[in-house]
């Protein structure tokens, strides 16, 4: 094939394109489209800018007030059930006590599959291990009384790191008989949760009320949404408010509600300390006996033995 034919073909194509004098593109259509694009862009900015500013400002305020970690945990709690729902029904099996309705739509079924994780505190939320540091203050004698040397040693022994508590709990769980009820999510989270910081958010609103009335000995109401709330309230009463009577009632209420919880041994130990503080020695001895005999899987066994010796020696 010669170049002439190719050139002729190109010329034919050019003439054909030139011969198309069809309806041209109206200029107004182009200008209208440009205006519409600008309007849409301005609307996007008008919507996005306040949202971004709001997000940045609220994040800065939360960071300044120290609420950012709490907000982050709440966001994680909100996101975690959604992830479980996406992962499939096996990730979040529906609870037997929350039966589905017959007419529930598909979206409702998905939501009900995610709901059981909420009341049982998802495993991502850090659960507080018992505050061991204030325990030393708790056991410390009043300022006017001389401190015996053995008791000082007891204080140091009691103020063991939280890691030891978790280890003891794991040992206890390994040696404990099989539970009748299924292991709760809070238990699993507590066993694997890192030790909480000392400056944790203050506890439930019921705690200050109980502290305001020292001899009232009223246990804070247990919220089914957060099983740790009574534990925290009792801790606050004992270690912060030093209201031994109210703390004792709070520990009793907690143990009545969750006798097999992972934190129940610590609650029983704190209860015994409250009894000691209230100088109810007989009851304290009775409460310390299981610890001394290793009934709690060896948890605080040595300290219980020392305390019992001191009680028997009349030092306490």
């Amino acid at each position: 094939m010669s170049d002439d034919l190719l050139q002729r073909a190109a010329r034919a194509l050019r003439d054909e394109a030139d011969g198309h004098s069809g309806p041209g593109l109206p200029k107004q259509a182009i200008l209208k489209k440009i205006e519409a694009n600008r309007r849409a862009s301005a609307q996007r900015w008008a919507v996005a800018t306040p949202l971004v500013l709001l997000l940045v400002t609220s994040t800065a305020i939360a960071a300044a007030t120290g609420a950012l970690p709490g907000v982050w945990q709440k966001v994680k709690q909100l996101v975690a059930p959604a992830e479980q729902t996406v992962a499939g029904p096996s990730a979040a099996p529906p609870a037997p006590e929350a039966p589905r309705r017959a007419g529930t739509p598909a979206t409702g079924q998905v939501r009900s599959a995610a709901e059981p994780a909420q009341p049982a505190q998802p495993a991502t939320a850090p659960l507080p291990a018992p505050e061991v540091a204030p325990l030393a203050q708790d056991l410390a004698p009043p300022a006017e009384a001389p401190v015996p040397s053995e008791q000082a040693r007891n204080e140091q022994a009691i103020a063991s790191p939280p890691v030891a508590l978790q280890h003891d709990l794991q040992v206890q769980r390994a040696g404990a008989p099989a539970r009748k009820e299924p292991l709760r999510a809070a238990d699993a989270a507590t066993a694997s949760a890192p030790a909480p910081r000392a400056e944790q958010p203050p506890a439930p609103p019921a705690a200050p009320e109980a502290a305001a009335s020292p001899p009232a000995a009223t246990a804070p109401p247990a919220s089914p949404a957060n099983p740790l709330q009574p534990f925290r309230a009792a801790q606050r009463l004992q270690f912060k408010d030093k209201n031994w009577l109210a703390a004792l009632a709070a520990w009793d209420a907690y143990l009545l509600q969750s006798p097999r919880d992972a934190l129940a041994p610590e609650a029983r130990w704190n209860r015994a300390i409250c009894l000691l503080r209230l100088e109810r020695t007989a009851e304290a001895r009775q409460a310390l006996q299981p610890f001394a005999q290793g009934a709690e899987g060896g948890y605080r066994q040595a300290q219980a033995v020392d305390l019992l010796k001191e009680i028997d020696g009349g030092e306490l």
Binding site: R8, A9, A12, L13, D15
Partner: peptide, 18 residues
């Protein structure tokens, strides 16, 4: 729509082939 009778049919075919 704008085909004119003067244009050669051969060129049209050539343009479409190209």
């Amino acid at each position: 729509q704008t085909e004119s009778p003067e244009r050669g049919a051969a060129d049209q075919q050539l343009a479409r082939a190209l």
